[in-house]
Amino acid sequence: MRYAIPIAVLAGLLVLFMVGLQRDPRLVPSPLVSKPAPAFDLPTLDGTPPRMRTADLRGAPVLVNFFASWCAGCQDEHPYLMELARSGRVRLVGVDYKDAADDVHAWLGRHGNPYASVLADADGRTGIDWGVYGVPETFVLDAAGTIVYKQIGPMTQQAFEHNIMPLIGNRESGNGNRGGQP
């Protein structure tokens, strides 16, 4: 019997690795999910209103998207964010992470501005409070200001439809099925 122990251990390891292959070890789930959004107080890019606080995010679901003009992944997700903004399905707030104002103005001018508001986190201090470790990252807040989901890496249609809509969609439209929209 004890001669079969090694092969049993091997079988266990193989199963473990099979599961492991399906996962990305670099993704770090946020401990902030299902907690109230961390406090912040940041200047807006266009100055109207001059500053925004956590409380200003409440009232309706909102996507808080940390981005930067120097980040390649942000360019990847940008067309989809533009599409989301045009569809008006959800409010988008951008946090410009460790960036220069001139750079981000030029960048948004070139690629379009999908955000209802853009906040400037010039020194990355708010990013730390939100546990951001690599832009782009997107936090999904419900109407009460609780973080319900975090997307690490570029936002995609796949992630939005499958992971995010079920969390925020029902409150907005009653039936999450909007597949036929252009």
Partner: peptide
């Protein structure tokens, strides 16, 4: 990864089976 996993299953599994 899947290939090496399969390969390990055959080679190491075969050897340990033989051992058992």
């Amino acid at each position: 990864g899947e290939f090496i996993l399969g390969f390990m299953a055959v080679v190491v599994g075969g050897a340990l089976g033989l051992y058992a």
